[in-house]
Design a protein around this nucleic acid. Structure first.
Lengths: 340, 340
DNA sequence: GCCGGCGATGTTGACGTCAACATCGGAAGC
DNA sequence: GCTTCCGATGTTGACGTCAACATCGCCGGC
């Protein structure tokens, strides 16, 4: 954590002032765009800035203003579909608000790592913090610096921190009901890992829906979000003659399941129907095009930033705010009635 | 770009000092971990910090030290495969070095936007800058603050800025030669957009390889990296009876091509062979598993950070350093000899 | 010709931290 | 008992910027 001492010390406002033959304050006025500077003086200052390659020292401004124009963002595996798209949305919205985003990733799902990341970031200069992750191991009460605005992408934080989450439950109900409507007797479930809160929510909603509909509840098949885990589960499913419909907790696992089924000679959707979750850009272009539950990551990101900005700007306290972003079922070609 | 005035003015070192009944300097000593503080005094200070919820003001430290422990990262569409994986690697390596990453995205490929992003970031305090993008419209000589260390993920910058790039040329040769070896008379090419430098490099290498092998060069089919564009191109390809092999500039377009071919009743690889580029995690689990050129985004990210840190740490000047990260062909099931 | 007033510019101090130097008090050595 | 030394703690100033206040010079009005 040792950081190179004394980064390039660049020219300061005083250097510009000297070169332009004015006081530092006049330079400051020019660089903040104040009105009351004679055009001729302004020109001279601008020329001096240009010559020296001056740009204002943000540390000094931040110190002066008590604000950094930066928000921190903690994510677990940031190359993953949901994460990267949410981050993209946050970054875009933040830019519109004049803020920059500081990114920290967290290696393991453990809570120690999160605490560490929070410490790292609050050590950095941030005006607020967004946490994009949802591991069940994450402590619900985070050890945050006092008065630090926070927004979290996990509805488990309700009552602790303002949260934004997709509507896992409705999405799951739509998916399962779609399969039941097609005539399937029951629906198998390929779940995400045990330590993922959204995975747990999807699995619980699936179970509840089956129970509520009086259907048998097959054993849950647990994957780890990767296509590979879906593939391995798919091989087991292919051997299970009773399975006719599978609801997968994400699209990657669904793709793995489909490939395993093909390899085993079982056709999708003729022999088995498969539904995914997320609606990744490729979902439509898999073969067959995947029926899936669409989540709007972009909106999640926007809402997160909005919640955060309201706290930063307005000093609002939003502790138990919870925003649920709707999900919807996109029916494509991977689902059909069960074989006769 | 106006930023909320005066963020939460938390307790300062002086408040802690007063509560603990010591001087500010002693508090500073405790918080920087200096040795020479009586254990009893240290305890009292720590207790006071705890009570007030003190954490050191990073802006003040940055001002003092002249370093933010932050590097800037500019990317175009950061949710895209290559971008997000490279970013992930950069963030991870940066953390290992004790640095945080500040993210700015660029909406359009135009150079004005890049200049703007650079300005935004150097306005922030960063110790170095990584630019992950490769649009041909990006000016080769960037208007950077003087003395700002930079690393760029585009080999076009050679001679201007230290650059890291995947070996597009070798990757392309491997892919095309693989198809020729299988017995295809020639290879069609689905290219990325005109404004992408890697797309141009792949297309040029493809053309060169065909010419060098004395094969006819079919018209280039230009997509925009999305699966949808691949799908539309695929429909045209399906109608072209002469096409037996297609080299696509990325995996998403390859997936779109494959789907279009299936819809048109043409089998992959029996009727047409398809090769992609990138080796996205899903490539192996498409149907059929996609033969593709693997690029190591993680390594690209690592190298970028390494180049940057060498400049930040050692004051090295690396202007014409160029690192080429190898690519390799991963043969799966989407390629086969042409139909008899 | 003097004065009020106003716009342009300069001066001072404060933001929070920490390094360098100053001071203070006690223990060891003679 | 007095000096010396050393470790613990305090004081000062500087990092770069900008708001608040001070000053300066000029113009117009009488």
């Amino acid at each position: 954590m040792t950081v190179a001492a004394r980064g390039r010390p660049g020219p300061s406002i005083a250097d510009v002032a000297q070169l332009a033959g004015v006081s530092a304050q006049t330079v400051s006025r020019v660089s903040t765009g104040a009105e009351n500077v004679r055009p001729e003086t302004r020109e001279r200052v601008l020329a001096a800035m240009d010559e020296l390659g001056y740009s204002p020292n943000h540390a000094a401004r931040a110190l002066r203003y008590g604000s950094f124009g930066t928000i921190g963002l903690i994510a677990h595996r940031l190359a993953r579909t949901g994460e990267s798209r949410t981050i993209e949305a946050v970054v875009e919205s933040a830019r519109a608000e004049g803020y920059t985003v500081s990114l920290v990733d967290v290696r393991t799902p453990g809570s120690a790592d999160v605490t560490d990341a929070v410490a790292r970031l609050s050590h950095q200069s941030i005006d607020g913090l967004i946490i994009i992750r949802a591991e069940t191991a994450t402590p619900v009460a985070l050890a945050l610096p006092p008065r630090m605005p926070v927004a979290v992408s996990d509805s488990r934080f309700v009552g602790h921190h303002p949260a934004v989450g997709a509507d896992q439950v409705t999405g799951t109900h739509l998916a399962v009901q779609h399969l039941l409507d097609l005539g399937h007797r029951t629906v198998h479930h390929v779940a995400g890992p045990d330590d993922s809160a959204p995975a747990q929510m999807r699995a619980a909603a699936w179970r509840e829906h089956l129970v509520g509909s009086g259907r048998p509840v097959p054993e849950v098949l647990v994957g780890d979000w990767t296509a590979r885990s879906g593939y391995e589960i798919g091989r087991r499913l292919a051997a299970d003659a009773s399975a006719t419909a599978v609801y997968c907790a994400n699209d990657e696992m669904a793709a793995g399941v489909v490939r395993a089924l093909y390899e085993a000679g079982r056709r999708v959707p003729d022999d088995l129907s498969v539904v995914g979750f997320d609606d990744i850009p490729l979902a439509e272009f898999l073969w067959p095009p995947l029926t899936t539950v669409q989540q709007d990551f972009h909106q999640i990101g926007d809402r997160l930033l909005d919640l955060l900005m309201r706290q930063i700007r307005g000093r609002e306290t939003l502790t138990d705010t919870r925003i649920v972003v709707p999900t919807r079922l996109v029916v494509r070609a991977s689902t059909a009635p069960p074989p006769a």
